[in-house]
């Protein structure tokens, strides 16, 4: 792992500004870098713009100012982002948005087929990805009949099937019960990819993130030191 590519940050964001409505800025001067092997936790209040930040990183929204660099390439518009989308995978906040194919197998196959692999190769990738995540038994199930936890896991399989170098995870554990949360945590710890993990569960972020930033007033800042909370027994 000594090649020079590692010296270049996977994601470099400088002075990013964004707004949905003129006069109501959402992000102002967001600044961060993500390097190989890093798991960056991003915490923040509801509506602070965490999901919007991930959409900006994928090129799904256009920044008002500032730059996004992915793998050392400056990305300005769709043409720049498109070839890199396979290398950077976004897990959406709502898994129902992501699972649009009729069956689990086809949904996981969607990305690799778009990447131009042959059918035989795609079958191999799908089988391997599902087996790695312990989801092989779901392959033929219709996506709309899965439980919440299964949906999240299958959506992640769909992202991983494209073999990305970076994962952007939007609240991967919300709406999951404790068992499913623990499974997702274990799963994430076992993955080699660098990640940006959005969550407002401090316990979960402590478990999986190597460092955590707080999105507040439109900018990323260091997490304030938390005073020990009084424990009632």
């Amino acid at each position: 792992m000594n090649d020079p590519a590692i010296q270049v940050p996977l994601i470099r964001v400088r002075n990013l500004a964004f707004r949905y409505h003129a006069g109501r800025p959402l992000l102002e001067g967001v600044l961060f870098e993500l390097r190989a092997g890093e798991r960056l936790g991003v915490s923040g209040a509801n509506g602070s713009g965490k999901s919007s930040l991930l959409q900006l990183l994928m090129g799904l929204e256009r920044p008002a100012a500032g730059t996004v660099e992915l793998f050392g390439h400056l990305c300005r518009d769709e043409v720049d982002f498109r070839p890199l989308r396979g290398r950077i995978g976004l897990l959406f906040q709502d898994a129902d948005d992501q699972l649009f194919c009729p069956t689990v197998e086809e949904d996981v196959a969607f990305g690799p087929l778009n990447q131009g692999y042959s059918h035989a190769q795609v079958r191999g990738i799908v089988a391997r990805t599902l087996a790695d995540l312990g989801l092989a038994h779901l392959a033929q199930r219709p996506t709309h009949q899965l439980s919440g936890g299964e949906k999240r896991a299958v959506a992640l399989a769909g992202v991983l099937a494209m073999q990305p170098d970076v994962l952007l995870l939007d609240e991967p554990t919300t709406c999951l019960d404790e068992d499913a949360q623990a499974r997702v945590t274990r799963l994430l710890l076992g993955l080699p990819q660098a990640m940006v993990i959005v969550s407002h569960d401090p316990h979960f972020l402590r478990c999986v993130a190597s460092r955590t930033l707080l999105l507040r007033d439109g900018a990323l800042c260091a997490m304030p030191v938390v005073r020990p909370v009084l424990r009632s027994v």
Binding site: Q55, M58, L60, R85, G86, D97, F100, G111, L113, M162
Partner: peptide
């Protein structure tokens, strides 16, 4: 958007 993130360009591949 989710489809674009996974490399969709207007053509639906059929696996089976």
């Amino acid at each position: 958007r989710a489809m674009r993130c996974r490399g969709w360009r207007g053509q639906f591949p059929v696996l089976n």
